[in-house]
Amino acid sequence: MQLNVPDRDYMHSGHVGCPGCGAAVAMKFVLRALGNKTIMVLPACCWSIIAGPYPQSTLQIPLIHSAFETGGAMASGVRAALDVKGDKETCVVTWAGDGGTFDIGFQALSGAVERNEDFIYFCYDNEAYMNTGIQRSSSTPYGAWTTTTPGRDWKRMRKKNIVEALVAHRIPYAATASIAYPEDLLRKVSKARSIKGSRFLHIFASCPTGWRIPSEISVKIARMAVQTNIFPLYEVENGRKYTINFMPKGYLVKEYFKLQGRFKHLSESDLDQIQAMVEEDWELLLRKAGVPLQG
């Protein structure tokens, strides 16, 4: 009955993530698959705090805090240093939020992967700048309330499709993953670790505080994002070969939206419009994956 995933954790209790933090679950899973021969670069984000103030660290691997916009560049440097030392075994990873990835860190990331630097870039996506108080990012989904898209001015732009942007760089491996699907997530991390060159993992990680949801449904809501096709699970090899990992069961997006305070202002017609947008994105993905559209 137990899921087939590695059992050893490389994290300590006592971290200061909010109760039910999806980003903490994401880190826990990723480390299980990476193991402790790993160095992590951590641009400013919630995890800068969760990891603990000096002299504490909640991770059992070396971790370097970096400036907000430098995740890609810093990791390139660490890799180069290890190469000088002749250390081929240690895996260099960046762990950044959506703000640090989609927005401010994007050029450093793009530069690093364009050079095909040998590292894994993890973006844990909680769909806003959570650490500084829930400001919208280019990852915040259409329809969401944030403190910078308040009241009737809820966000009316679509979420940036970051995986497609990375795929456009033709990197060896890019994939989405979710904290609600640990087997899929850990498999993808292990697979990424076994590949050379730039690898990118986009991990959906719920945020009870910023999404205005009860903490106990934190994993459930992440699962619903996959079930409703809002966050499809797929992977792309060498910028060309698409594989869809989860075929949806036809749940409606409104089931997902109505559980979250950040969407409570949306009307039925807004939700219908969002349903259509999700379907359009899904069909686009099916086409790229060469899967025939269903009736």
Binding site: H12, S13, G14, H15, V16, G52, Y54, P55, Q56, S57, T58, Q60
Partner: peptide, 12 residues
């Protein structure tokens, strides 16, 4: 500066 203790001291 290099951290050298775990967070286990925080009884969350």
């Amino acid at each position: 500066p290099r951290s050298h203790v775990s967070t286990a001291g925080n009884k969350t």
